[in-house]
Amino acid sequence: MTTGGDAALVERFLEMMAAQVGAAPNTLAAYRSDLMLASSALDGRLATADGDAIAALSATWLPLASSTVARKAAALRRFYAFLCEEGDRDDNPSDALPRPAARRTLPRTLDHHDVDRLFGVISERLAGAPLPSDLRLAALIELLYGSGLRASELVSLPRGAVHPDRPYLILRGKGGRERMVPISDRARAAVAAWRAHVDPGRAFLFPSGRGHLSRIRLYQLVKTLAADAGIDPDRVSPHVLRHAFATHLLEGGADLRALQSMLGHADIATTEIYTHVDASRLVDLVNARHPLVDLTRERP
């Protein structure tokens, strides 16, 4: 049986979990074990398995403890969400997996005050004569929060991807799929200031060594910025900034289909998680602001 193709995708997934989510080493080891055991059971076709194959695999877990089943299902569910997010799959077979009783958690995000604190630190660094590293950080954060780019998309941007006179960039994903991503005036200005310090001979906008900035280094830069802004670094990552981009756009009235296009989600179901985030905000708003709340408070 061959698991080579699966193994490469699993390692990419684990790299993302380490760089963007900050998963602990024990968690990464457990995910690697569960995913590679599943790959072996599916003859090396975990990444391309359909719902029937996943259901058959799940059936072999029946003798296991419920906590073990929940862990295995969670590993596969996150793996398939990653494949969809990266454009390696157009569909998600996770519905065939057993679902633990625990309530699905909403993606971590930041409120507007948190974002203001992050940009406040950047503004202070840009005052006067900023270092090139400060200009790079400003460009990275403007693109992360202002355009909702994936970490992998951001660090691998070509040097000329962002044009000073074009308010968008075109990203090409897996299978040749393209999507248009809006770029704010602020982000274009930040990129222009940084690009002036990039060797014209370099292929990438954020070069490092012989290639481009790594996702792990991006993760470290974001964590350091959060700490400097007085925010718990555990609350902030490149992926959290992408979630903040989506959540704040939806709060501002963005259309879900437009958000799906900007985020590059192949399946609208992936984007719909943000309706739950927005719904939770609306529930709080109703409980705090609805006129009937005041009537209830006035009753003896």
Score class of each variant (00 low, 15 high):
Ala8Met: 05
Ala8Ile: 08
Arg12Trp: 03
Leu14Phe: 00
Glu15Phe: 02
Glu15Asp: 14
Met16Trp: 05
Met17Asp: 04
Ala18Asn: 08
Ala18Gln: 14
Val21Arg: 13
Ala23Gln: 11
Ala24Leu: 07
Ala24Tyr: 04
Pro25Cys: 05
Pro25Val: 04
Asn26Ser: 13
Thr27Ile: 02
Thr27Ala: 04
Ala29Gln: 08
Leu35Glu: 07
Leu37Gln: 14
Ser40Tyr: 01
Ala41Gly: 07
Ala47Met: 03
Ala47His: 11
Thr48Gly: 03
Thr48Leu: 04
Ala56Ser: 10
Ala56Gln: 10
Trp61Tyr: 07
Pro63Val: 02
Ala65Met: 03
Lys72Tyr: 13
Ala73Glu: 09
Ala73Pro: 09
Ala75Met: 06
Arg77Asn: 05
Arg78Met: 07
Arg78Phe: 02
Tyr80Pro: 08
Tyr80Cys: 12
Cys84Trp: 09
Gly87His: 13
Asp88Lys: 03
Pro93Val: 02
Pro93Asp: 00
Pro93Gly: 01
Asp95His: 14
Ala96Gln: 06
Pro98Glu: 11
Arg99Leu: 05
Arg99Gln: 12
Arg99Tyr: 01
Ala101Ile: 00
Arg103Asn: 03
Leu106Pro: 05
Asp111Val: 03
His113Lys: 13
Asp116Ile: 00
Phe119Lys: 00
Val121Leu: 04
Glu124Trp: 02
Leu126His: 04
Pro132Gln: 06
Asp134Thr: 06
Asp134Leu: 04
Leu135Phe: 02
Gly146Ile: 09
Gly146Arg: 13
Gly148Phe: 08
Leu149Arg: 06
Glu153Cys: 09
Gly160Met: 07
Asp165Trp: 00
Pro167Cys: 03
Tyr168Ile: 00
Leu171Cys: 10
Arg172Glu: 10
Gly173Pro: 01
Lys174Asn: 11
Lys174Met: 13
Gly175Leu: 09
Gly176Asp: 08
Arg179Phe: 07
Met180Ala: 13
Asp185Lys: 13
Arg186Pro: 09
Ala189Lys: 04
Trp194Leu: 13
Arg195Ala: 15
His197Leu: 14
His197Lys: 15
Val198Pro: 05
Arg202Ala: 14
Ala203Phe: 09
Phe204Thr: 12
Leu205Asn: 06
Phe206Arg: 12
Ser208Lys: 04
Gly209Trp: 05
Gly209Val: 05
Gly209Phe: 06
Arg210Leu: 12
Arg210Met: 09
Gly211Cys: 10
His212Tyr: 05
Leu213Val: 11
Ser214Glu: 00
Ser214Leu: 00
Lys223Arg: 15
Pro233Gln: 03
Asp234Tyr: 12
Val236Tyr: 11
Pro238Thr: 02
Arg242Met: 06
His243Ala: 05
Leu250Ser: 15
Ala254Gly: 02
Leu259Asp: 09
Gln260Glu: 10
Leu263Lys: 06
Asp267Met: 05
Thr270Pro: 00
Thr271Gly: 07
Glu272Tyr: 02
Tyr274Thr: 00
Tyr274Arg: 02
Asp278Val: 15
Ala279His: 14
Val283Leu: 08
Leu285Tyr: 14
Arg289Tyr: 15
Pro291Ala: 10
Pro300Asn: 11
